[in-house]
Design a protein around this nucleic acid. Structure first.
Lengths: 215, 215
DNA sequence: TTTCAGATGTTACTAGCGGTAACCCGCAGT
DNA sequence: ACTGCGGGTTACCGCTAGTAACATCTGAAA
Protein backbone atom coordinates (compact mmCIF):
# COMPACT_ATOMS: atom_id res chain seq x y z
CA UNK A 1 0.00 0.00 0.00
CA UNK A 2 3.06 2.27 0.12
CA UNK A 3 2.78 2.80 -3.60
CA UNK A 4 -0.67 4.28 -3.28
CA UNK A 5 0.52 7.73 -4.18
CA UNK A 6 2.52 6.36 -7.05
CA UNK A 7 -0.28 4.26 -8.49
CA UNK A 8 -2.60 7.18 -7.93
CA UNK A 9 -0.42 9.38 -10.06
CA UNK A 10 -0.18 6.65 -12.64
CA UNK A 11 -3.94 6.38 -12.51
CA UNK A 12 -4.44 10.03 -13.29
CA UNK A 13 -1.72 9.88 -15.93
CA UNK A 14 -3.30 6.99 -17.78
CA UNK A 15 -6.70 8.60 -17.39
CA UNK A 16 -5.33 11.76 -18.96
CA UNK A 17 -3.80 9.75 -21.77
CA UNK A 18 -7.10 7.99 -22.26
CA UNK A 19 -8.87 11.31 -22.56
CA UNK A 20 -6.33 12.51 -25.10
CA UNK A 21 -6.85 9.39 -27.15
CA UNK A 22 -10.60 9.82 -26.95
CA UNK A 23 -10.30 13.38 -28.19
CA UNK A 24 -8.18 12.27 -31.12
CA UNK A 25 -10.70 9.55 -31.86
CA UNK A 26 -13.51 12.07 -31.73
CA UNK A 27 -11.74 14.31 -34.22
CA UNK A 28 -11.40 11.41 -36.66
CA UNK A 29 -14.92 10.14 -36.17
CA UNK A 30 -16.23 13.62 -36.77
CA UNK A 31 -14.15 13.88 -39.93
CA UNK A 32 -14.55 10.40 -41.42
CA UNK A 33 -17.94 9.40 -40.07
CA UNK A 34 -18.50 5.67 -39.82
CA UNK A 35 -15.46 4.97 -41.99
CA UNK A 36 -13.11 5.99 -39.22
CA UNK A 37 -10.51 3.27 -38.87
CA UNK A 38 -8.34 2.35 -35.93
CA UNK A 39 -5.27 3.12 -38.02
CA UNK A 40 -6.50 6.62 -38.74
CA UNK A 41 -7.37 7.26 -35.10
CA UNK A 42 -3.99 6.00 -33.96
CA UNK A 43 -2.26 8.18 -36.54
CA UNK A 44 -4.25 11.20 -35.41
CA UNK A 45 -3.16 10.53 -31.84
CA UNK A 46 0.45 10.24 -33.04
CA UNK A 47 0.79 6.59 -32.08
CA UNK A 48 0.02 3.15 -33.46
CA UNK A 49 -2.81 0.71 -33.12
CA UNK A 50 -1.79 -1.62 -30.27
CA UNK A 51 -1.90 1.22 -27.78
CA UNK A 52 -5.50 1.87 -28.64
CA UNK A 53 -6.24 -1.79 -28.10
CA UNK A 54 -4.45 -1.74 -24.74
CA UNK A 55 -6.65 1.13 -23.62
CA UNK A 56 -10.01 0.15 -25.03
CA UNK A 57 -9.86 -3.57 -25.70
CA UNK A 58 -11.42 -3.47 -29.12
CA UNK A 59 -13.10 -1.05 -31.47
CA UNK A 60 -16.42 -1.50 -29.76
CA UNK A 61 -14.81 -0.49 -26.48
CA UNK A 62 -13.45 2.69 -27.98
CA UNK A 63 -16.78 3.53 -29.56
CA UNK A 64 -18.60 2.83 -26.32
CA UNK A 65 -16.21 5.00 -24.36
CA UNK A 66 -16.70 7.72 -26.94
CA UNK A 67 -20.45 7.33 -26.82
CA UNK A 68 -21.03 7.53 -23.09
CA UNK A 69 -19.73 11.07 -22.94
CA UNK A 70 -22.17 12.46 -25.47
CA UNK A 71 -24.93 10.22 -24.27
CA UNK A 72 -24.54 11.54 -20.75
CA UNK A 73 -24.42 15.11 -21.98
CA UNK A 74 -27.55 14.71 -24.06
CA UNK A 75 -29.37 12.91 -21.29
CA UNK A 76 -28.53 15.71 -18.88
CA UNK A 77 -29.94 18.26 -21.31
CA UNK A 78 -33.11 16.31 -21.78
CA UNK A 79 -33.48 15.72 -18.06
CA UNK A 80 -33.52 19.45 -17.35
CA UNK A 81 -36.07 20.03 -20.09
CA UNK A 82 -38.12 17.17 -18.71
CA UNK A 83 -37.98 18.52 -15.16
CA UNK A 84 -38.84 22.12 -15.91
CA UNK A 85 -41.67 23.35 -13.64
CA UNK A 86 -44.07 24.33 -16.39
CA UNK A 87 -47.17 22.96 -18.01
CA UNK A 88 -47.02 19.45 -19.31
CA UNK A 89 -47.35 20.48 -22.90
CA UNK A 90 -44.59 23.05 -22.54
CA UNK A 91 -42.40 20.40 -21.00
CA UNK A 92 -43.00 18.07 -23.94
CA UNK A 93 -42.22 20.86 -26.35
CA UNK A 94 -39.04 21.77 -24.49
CA UNK A 95 -37.87 18.16 -24.52
CA UNK A 96 -38.51 17.71 -28.22
CA UNK A 97 -36.79 20.99 -28.91
CA UNK A 98 -33.76 20.04 -26.81
CA UNK A 99 -33.35 16.79 -28.70
CA UNK A 100 -33.77 18.39 -32.10
CA UNK A 101 -31.41 21.21 -31.24
CA UNK A 102 -28.79 18.69 -30.25
CA UNK A 103 -29.01 16.71 -33.47
CA UNK A 104 -29.16 19.91 -35.47
CA UNK A 105 -26.04 21.47 -34.06
CA UNK A 106 -23.90 18.33 -34.11
CA UNK A 107 -25.26 15.97 -36.73
CA UNK A 108 -22.05 13.98 -37.00
CA UNK A 109 -22.14 13.20 -33.32
CA UNK A 110 -25.79 12.31 -33.58
CA UNK A 111 -25.09 10.04 -36.51
CA UNK A 112 -22.30 8.35 -34.63
CA UNK A 113 -24.41 7.78 -31.55
CA UNK A 114 -27.35 6.36 -33.44
CA UNK A 115 -25.30 4.11 -35.67
CA UNK A 116 -24.27 0.99 -33.80
CA UNK A 117 -23.06 -0.47 -37.14
CA UNK A 118 -21.48 -3.61 -35.74
CA UNK A 119 -19.82 -3.28 -32.32
CA UNK A 120 -21.02 -5.01 -29.14
CA UNK A 121 -20.18 -8.33 -30.72
CA UNK A 122 -18.16 -9.52 -27.74
CA UNK A 123 -20.75 -8.79 -25.07
CA UNK A 124 -23.95 -10.69 -24.48
CA UNK A 125 -23.31 -13.29 -27.13
CA UNK A 126 -25.69 -15.69 -28.88
CA UNK A 127 -27.87 -14.34 -31.62
CA UNK A 128 -30.40 -12.12 -29.97
CA UNK A 129 -32.49 -11.36 -32.98
CA UNK A 130 -34.13 -8.03 -33.17
CA UNK A 131 -31.35 -6.15 -31.48
CA UNK A 132 -30.45 -3.20 -33.58
CA UNK A 133 -31.18 0.17 -32.11
CA UNK A 134 -28.50 2.18 -30.43
CA UNK A 135 -28.06 1.94 -26.68
CA UNK A 136 -28.73 5.64 -26.52
CA UNK A 137 -32.27 5.14 -27.76
CA UNK A 138 -32.89 2.45 -25.19
CA UNK A 139 -31.62 4.63 -22.38
CA UNK A 140 -33.71 7.53 -23.60
CA UNK A 141 -36.80 5.36 -23.73
CA UNK A 142 -36.30 4.02 -20.24
CA UNK A 143 -35.51 7.43 -18.86
CA UNK A 144 -38.63 8.90 -20.37
CA UNK A 145 -40.67 5.97 -19.05
CA UNK A 146 -39.43 6.75 -15.54
CA UNK A 147 -40.48 10.37 -15.83
CA UNK A 148 -43.88 9.38 -17.15
CA UNK A 149 -44.39 6.92 -14.33
CA UNK A 150 -43.37 9.56 -11.80
CA UNK A 151 -45.53 12.32 -13.16
CA UNK A 152 -48.67 10.76 -14.55
CA UNK A 153 -51.37 8.78 -12.82
CA UNK A 154 -51.79 5.87 -15.18
CA UNK A 155 -53.70 3.55 -12.89
CA UNK A 156 -53.14 -0.22 -12.77
CA UNK A 157 -50.68 -1.57 -15.31
CA UNK A 158 -49.35 1.92 -15.63
CA UNK A 159 -45.76 0.86 -15.59
CA UNK A 160 -46.13 -1.02 -18.86
CA UNK A 161 -48.01 1.88 -20.39
CA UNK A 162 -45.25 4.23 -19.36
CA UNK A 163 -42.56 2.10 -20.96
CA UNK A 164 -44.49 1.66 -24.19
CA UNK A 165 -45.10 5.37 -24.36
CA UNK A 166 -41.50 6.18 -23.47
CA UNK A 167 -40.03 4.07 -26.22
CA UNK A 168 -42.75 5.09 -28.62
CA UNK A 169 -42.19 8.78 -28.07
CA UNK A 170 -38.45 8.42 -28.32
CA UNK A 171 -38.89 6.51 -31.54
CA UNK A 172 -41.14 9.23 -32.88
CA UNK A 173 -38.58 11.87 -31.96
CA UNK A 174 -35.83 9.89 -33.58
CA UNK A 175 -37.69 9.03 -36.75
CA UNK A 176 -39.06 12.49 -37.33
CA UNK A 177 -35.75 14.08 -36.39
CA UNK A 178 -33.85 11.91 -38.81
CA UNK A 179 -36.19 12.75 -41.65
CA UNK A 180 -36.18 16.44 -40.75
CA UNK A 181 -32.40 16.61 -40.58
CA UNK A 182 -32.15 15.10 -44.02
CA UNK A 183 -34.80 17.12 -45.81
CA UNK A 184 -35.08 20.25 -43.72
CA UNK A 185 -38.66 20.81 -44.80
CA UNK A 186 -39.41 23.35 -42.08
CA UNK A 187 -38.05 25.18 -39.08
CA UNK A 188 -37.35 23.48 -35.80
CA UNK A 189 -40.17 25.33 -34.08
CA UNK A 190 -42.67 24.17 -36.65
CA UNK A 191 -41.55 20.59 -36.33
CA UNK A 192 -41.82 20.72 -32.57
CA UNK A 193 -45.29 22.11 -32.77
CA UNK A 194 -46.51 19.52 -35.26
CA UNK A 195 -45.12 16.68 -33.22
CA UNK A 196 -46.62 18.03 -30.04
CA UNK A 197 -49.95 18.32 -31.79
CA UNK A 198 -49.63 14.71 -32.83
CA UNK A 199 -48.89 13.63 -29.26
CA UNK A 200 -51.78 15.77 -28.07
CA UNK A 201 -54.30 13.75 -29.96
CA UNK A 202 -54.81 15.84 -33.06
CA UNK A 203 -54.72 12.69 -35.15
CA UNK A 204 -57.97 11.67 -33.47
CA UNK A 205 -59.44 15.14 -33.38
CA UNK A 206 -59.23 16.41 -36.94
CA UNK A 207 -62.14 15.81 -39.28
CA UNK A 208 -62.27 13.47 -42.23
CA UNK A 209 -62.08 14.91 -45.70
CA UNK A 210 -65.51 15.68 -47.01
CA UNK A 211 -64.80 14.57 -50.55
CA UNK A 212 -63.31 11.20 -49.65
CA UNK A 213 -64.98 8.07 -48.32
CA UNK A 214 -65.71 9.34 -44.88
CA UNK A 215 -64.58 6.72 -42.45
CA UNK B 1 -33.76 -6.29 -83.91
CA UNK B 2 -33.76 -9.83 -85.37
CA UNK B 3 -32.19 -11.12 -82.21
CA UNK B 4 -35.11 -9.94 -80.15
CA UNK B 5 -36.26 -13.45 -79.44
CA UNK B 6 -32.76 -14.50 -78.57
CA UNK B 7 -32.01 -11.59 -76.30
CA UNK B 8 -35.47 -12.01 -74.84
CA UNK B 9 -34.77 -15.57 -73.90
CA UNK B 10 -31.40 -14.57 -72.55
CA UNK B 11 -33.16 -11.86 -70.61
CA UNK B 12 -35.49 -14.27 -68.91
CA UNK B 13 -32.65 -16.71 -68.36
CA UNK B 14 -30.47 -14.15 -66.61
CA UNK B 15 -33.48 -12.93 -64.68
CA UNK B 16 -34.12 -16.44 -63.48
CA UNK B 17 -30.48 -16.82 -62.53
CA UNK B 18 -30.66 -13.54 -60.71
CA UNK B 19 -33.66 -14.71 -58.73
CA UNK B 20 -31.87 -17.92 -57.82
CA UNK B 21 -28.90 -15.96 -56.60
CA UNK B 22 -31.14 -13.70 -54.58
CA UNK B 23 -32.79 -16.68 -52.95
CA UNK B 24 -29.42 -18.12 -52.00
CA UNK B 25 -28.41 -14.74 -50.62
CA UNK B 26 -31.61 -14.59 -48.62
CA UNK B 27 -30.94 -17.98 -47.08
CA UNK B 28 -27.50 -16.84 -45.97
CA UNK B 29 -28.63 -13.47 -44.70
CA UNK B 30 -31.34 -15.18 -42.72
CA UNK B 31 -28.81 -17.58 -41.25
CA UNK B 32 -25.84 -15.28 -40.62
CA UNK B 33 -27.56 -11.96 -40.08
CA UNK B 34 -25.40 -8.92 -40.83
CA UNK B 35 -22.25 -11.07 -40.87
CA UNK B 36 -23.23 -12.63 -44.17
CA UNK B 37 -20.23 -12.41 -46.49
CA UNK B 38 -20.13 -12.47 -50.25
CA UNK B 39 -18.05 -15.63 -50.10
CA UNK B 40 -20.68 -17.40 -48.05
CA UNK B 41 -23.47 -16.28 -50.34
CA UNK B 42 -21.55 -17.39 -53.42
CA UNK B 43 -20.84 -20.74 -51.79
CA UNK B 44 -24.51 -21.18 -50.93
CA UNK B 45 -25.39 -20.49 -54.56
CA UNK B 46 -22.78 -23.04 -55.63
CA UNK B 47 -20.61 -20.53 -57.43
CA UNK B 48 -17.87 -18.01 -56.67
CA UNK B 49 -17.77 -14.33 -55.95
CA UNK B 50 -17.17 -12.64 -59.32
CA UNK B 51 -20.53 -13.86 -60.63
CA UNK B 52 -22.28 -12.10 -57.80
CA UNK B 53 -20.41 -8.94 -58.65
CA UNK B 54 -21.35 -9.27 -62.31
CA UNK B 55 -25.00 -9.47 -61.37
CA UNK B 56 -25.24 -6.92 -58.61
CA UNK B 57 -22.23 -4.62 -58.97
CA UNK B 58 -21.27 -4.55 -55.34
CA UNK B 59 -22.53 -5.71 -51.99
CA UNK B 60 -24.79 -2.70 -51.65
CA UNK B 61 -26.42 -3.61 -54.94
CA UNK B 62 -27.13 -7.13 -53.78
CA UNK B 63 -28.52 -5.88 -50.49
CA UNK B 64 -30.68 -3.33 -52.23
CA UNK B 65 -32.02 -5.93 -54.65
CA UNK B 66 -32.75 -8.16 -51.68
CA UNK B 67 -34.41 -5.36 -49.79
CA UNK B 68 -36.87 -4.15 -52.41
CA UNK B 69 -38.68 -7.49 -52.42
CA UNK B 70 -39.46 -7.47 -48.72
CA UNK B 71 -40.01 -3.76 -48.68
CA UNK B 72 -42.61 -4.10 -51.40
CA UNK B 73 -44.26 -7.00 -49.63
CA UNK B 74 -44.45 -5.17 -46.32
CA UNK B 75 -45.71 -2.00 -47.96
CA UNK B 76 -48.44 -3.97 -49.67
CA UNK B 77 -49.53 -5.45 -46.35
CA UNK B 78 -49.59 -2.08 -44.68
CA UNK B 79 -51.44 -0.52 -47.59
CA UNK B 80 -54.31 -2.97 -47.25
CA UNK B 81 -54.49 -2.38 -43.50
CA UNK B 82 -54.40 1.35 -44.17
CA UNK B 83 -57.18 1.16 -46.73
CA UNK B 84 -59.59 -1.01 -44.80
CA UNK B 85 -63.08 0.52 -44.76
CA UNK B 86 -63.44 0.74 -41.00
CA UNK B 87 -63.22 3.39 -38.32
CA UNK B 88 -60.08 5.47 -38.23
CA UNK B 89 -58.96 4.09 -34.92
CA UNK B 90 -59.46 0.53 -36.12
CA UNK B 91 -57.44 1.32 -39.19
CA UNK B 92 -54.58 2.66 -37.08
CA UNK B 93 -54.71 -0.42 -34.90
CA UNK B 94 -54.72 -2.70 -37.92
CA UNK B 95 -51.72 -0.93 -39.41
CA UNK B 96 -49.72 -1.08 -36.22
CA UNK B 97 -50.63 -4.71 -35.83
CA UNK B 98 -49.63 -5.53 -39.40
CA UNK B 99 -46.22 -3.96 -38.90
CA UNK B 100 -45.63 -5.64 -35.57
CA UNK B 101 -46.79 -8.99 -36.86
CA UNK B 102 -44.33 -8.71 -39.72
CA UNK B 103 -41.36 -7.95 -37.50
CA UNK B 104 -42.46 -10.59 -35.04
CA UNK B 105 -42.72 -13.42 -37.51
CA UNK B 106 -39.53 -12.65 -39.42
CA UNK B 107 -37.19 -10.71 -37.13
CA UNK B 108 -34.13 -11.52 -39.18
CA UNK B 109 -35.67 -9.97 -42.26
CA UNK B 110 -36.76 -7.00 -40.23
CA UNK B 111 -33.29 -6.59 -38.83
CA UNK B 112 -31.80 -6.79 -42.27
CA UNK B 113 -34.15 -4.21 -43.71
CA UNK B 114 -33.65 -1.74 -40.91
CA UNK B 115 -29.90 -2.06 -40.75
CA UNK B 116 -28.28 -0.11 -43.54
CA UNK B 117 -24.90 -0.79 -41.88
CA UNK B 118 -22.70 0.54 -44.67
CA UNK B 119 -24.01 0.13 -48.25
CA UNK B 120 -25.16 2.95 -50.52
CA UNK B 121 -21.64 4.32 -50.49
CA UNK B 122 -21.39 4.61 -54.28
CA UNK B 123 -24.54 6.64 -54.80
CA UNK B 124 -25.02 10.28 -53.88
CA UNK B 125 -21.48 10.84 -52.67
CA UNK B 126 -20.05 13.60 -50.49
CA UNK B 127 -20.77 13.47 -46.80
CA UNK B 128 -24.46 14.12 -46.43
CA UNK B 129 -24.56 14.31 -42.70
CA UNK B 130 -27.60 13.03 -40.93
CA UNK B 131 -28.38 10.24 -43.33
CA UNK B 132 -28.78 7.08 -41.39
CA UNK B 133 -32.19 5.52 -41.37
CA UNK B 134 -33.11 2.72 -43.70
CA UNK B 135 -34.76 3.53 -47.00
CA UNK B 136 -37.67 1.39 -45.88
CA UNK B 137 -38.45 3.79 -43.06
CA UNK B 138 -38.38 6.74 -45.42
CA UNK B 139 -40.72 5.04 -47.85
CA UNK B 140 -43.05 4.06 -45.03
CA UNK B 141 -43.12 7.62 -43.74
CA UNK B 142 -43.90 9.09 -47.12
CA UNK B 143 -46.52 6.47 -47.83
CA UNK B 144 -48.26 7.14 -44.56
CA UNK B 145 -48.07 10.87 -45.20
CA UNK B 146 -49.87 10.36 -48.48
CA UNK B 147 -52.65 8.42 -46.81
CA UNK B 148 -53.00 11.05 -44.12
CA UNK B 149 -53.18 13.81 -46.68
CA UNK B 150 -55.79 11.90 -48.63
CA UNK B 151 -57.97 11.03 -45.70
CA UNK B 152 -57.77 13.88 -43.22
CA UNK B 153 -58.80 17.48 -43.59
CA UNK B 154 -55.76 19.27 -42.18
CA UNK B 155 -56.46 22.71 -43.53
CA UNK B 156 -53.75 25.05 -44.86
CA UNK B 157 -50.21 23.77 -44.51
CA UNK B 158 -51.66 20.34 -44.13
CA UNK B 159 -49.15 18.71 -46.39
CA UNK B 160 -46.30 19.51 -44.05
CA UNK B 161 -48.32 18.33 -41.08
CA UNK B 162 -49.05 15.06 -42.84
CA UNK B 163 -45.41 14.41 -43.57
CA UNK B 164 -44.31 15.23 -40.05
CA UNK B 165 -46.98 12.96 -38.66
CA UNK B 166 -46.20 10.22 -41.15
CA UNK B 167 -42.52 10.08 -40.28
CA UNK B 168 -43.25 10.58 -36.61
CA UNK B 169 -45.73 7.71 -36.47
CA UNK B 170 -43.45 5.42 -38.44
CA UNK B 171 -40.63 6.30 -36.07
CA UNK B 172 -42.85 5.53 -33.10
CA UNK B 173 -43.80 2.20 -34.61
CA UNK B 174 -40.20 1.38 -35.31
CA UNK B 175 -38.83 2.46 -31.95
CA UNK B 176 -41.50 0.78 -29.89
CA UNK B 177 -41.39 -2.32 -32.08
CA UNK B 178 -37.66 -2.63 -31.73
CA UNK B 179 -37.85 -2.38 -27.97
CA UNK B 180 -40.78 -4.76 -27.78
CA UNK B 181 -39.07 -7.34 -29.97
CA UNK B 182 -36.05 -7.27 -27.70
CA UNK B 183 -37.75 -7.38 -24.33
CA UNK B 184 -41.11 -8.89 -25.11
CA UNK B 185 -42.71 -7.18 -22.13
CA UNK B 186 -46.27 -7.83 -23.28
CA UNK B 187 -48.43 -9.32 -25.98
CA UNK B 188 -48.77 -7.77 -29.40
CA UNK B 189 -52.36 -6.81 -28.78
CA UNK B 190 -51.46 -4.95 -25.61
CA UNK B 191 -48.69 -3.08 -27.36
CA UNK B 192 -50.97 -2.08 -30.18
CA UNK B 193 -53.56 -0.82 -27.77
CA UNK B 194 -51.10 1.22 -25.74
CA UNK B 195 -49.62 2.80 -28.84
CA UNK B 196 -53.02 3.63 -30.23
CA UNK B 197 -53.94 5.19 -26.91
CA UNK B 198 -50.82 7.29 -27.14
CA UNK B 199 -51.69 8.43 -30.65
CA UNK B 200 -55.23 9.11 -29.49
CA UNK B 201 -54.13 11.76 -27.07
CA UNK B 202 -54.05 9.85 -23.82
CA UNK B 203 -50.77 11.55 -22.97
CA UNK B 204 -52.67 14.82 -22.76
CA UNK B 205 -55.78 13.35 -21.19
CA UNK B 206 -54.53 11.45 -18.15
CA UNK B 207 -54.32 13.23 -14.82
CA UNK B 208 -51.22 14.26 -12.96
CA UNK B 209 -50.18 12.28 -9.94
CA UNK B 210 -51.71 13.71 -6.82
CA UNK B 211 -48.66 13.15 -4.64
CA UNK B 212 -46.19 14.75 -7.00
CA UNK B 213 -45.66 18.37 -7.89
CA UNK B 214 -48.73 18.80 -9.95
CA UNK B 215 -47.75 20.56 -13.09
C1' DT C 1 -18.76 -25.72 -91.02
C1' DT C 2 -16.25 -22.37 -89.23
C1' DT C 3 -16.22 -18.35 -86.68
C1' DC C 4 -17.57 -14.92 -83.75
C1' DA C 5 -20.32 -12.90 -79.56
C1' DG C 6 -21.70 -13.27 -75.22
C1' DA C 7 -22.78 -15.22 -71.03
C1' DT C 8 -20.95 -18.47 -67.28
C1' DG C 9 -17.53 -19.80 -64.58
C1' DT C 10 -12.85 -20.20 -62.42
C1' DT C 11 -8.15 -19.06 -60.05
C1' DA C 12 -5.39 -15.87 -58.20
C1' DC C 13 -4.71 -11.66 -56.79
C1' DT C 14 -4.87 -6.58 -54.36
C1' DA C 15 -5.75 -3.37 -50.65
C1' DG C 16 -7.39 -2.63 -46.39
C1' DC C 17 -9.64 -3.87 -42.22
C1' DG C 18 -9.69 -5.41 -36.96
C1' DG C 19 -6.79 -7.61 -33.93
C1' DT C 20 -2.43 -9.73 -31.83
C1' DA C 21 2.35 -11.57 -30.66
C1' DA C 22 6.81 -10.36 -29.88
C1' DC C 23 9.99 -7.30 -29.04
C1' DC C 24 12.26 -2.60 -27.41
C1' DC C 25 13.16 1.21 -24.21
C1' DG C 26 13.23 4.23 -20.21
C1' DC C 27 12.44 4.72 -15.56
C1' DA C 28 10.75 3.59 -10.76
C1' DG C 29 12.04 0.66 -6.49
C1' DT C 30 14.85 -2.91 -4.00
C1' DA D 1 23.17 -3.82 -10.77
C1' DC D 2 18.87 -5.95 -11.45
C1' DT D 3 14.02 -6.31 -12.01
C1' DG D 4 9.48 -5.14 -13.15
C1' DC D 5 6.34 -2.44 -15.77
C1' DG D 6 3.93 1.04 -18.70
C1' DG D 7 4.40 3.26 -23.29
C1' DG D 8 5.62 2.25 -27.86
C1' DT D 9 6.83 -0.20 -32.33
C1' DT D 10 7.30 -3.72 -36.19
C1' DA D 11 5.54 -7.38 -38.31
C1' DC D 12 2.30 -10.40 -38.77
C1' DC D 13 -2.64 -13.26 -39.11
C1' DG D 14 -7.11 -14.03 -40.94
C1' DC D 15 -10.59 -11.94 -42.83
C1' DT D 16 -13.23 -8.92 -45.95
C1' DA D 17 -14.87 -6.49 -50.48
C1' DG D 18 -13.62 -6.15 -54.93
C1' DT D 19 -11.01 -7.15 -59.51
C1' DA D 20 -8.10 -8.85 -63.50
C1' DA D 21 -7.22 -12.48 -66.39
C1' DC D 22 -8.20 -16.57 -68.24
C1' DA D 23 -11.17 -20.77 -69.58
C1' DT D 24 -15.52 -22.78 -71.32
C1' DC D 25 -19.90 -23.47 -73.33
C1' DT D 26 -23.78 -22.15 -76.51
C1' DG D 27 -26.08 -20.49 -80.17
C1' DA D 28 -26.44 -17.55 -84.14
C1' DA D 29 -24.41 -15.67 -88.42
C1' DA D 30 -20.75 -16.06 -92.45
Amino acid sequence: MESTEHSGRQQTATERRRRELLEAAERIVLRDGPDASMNAIAAEAGITKPILYRHFGDKGGLYRALAVRHTDALLANLATALDAPVLRRDRVEATLDAYLLAIETRPQVYRFLMHPSDEDHPSESSFDVGRHSAPLLRRLGEELAKVITDRLDLGPGGELTARVWGHGIVGMMHGAGDWWLRERPCSREQLVEQLTDLLWGQLAAVKDRVDGPGF
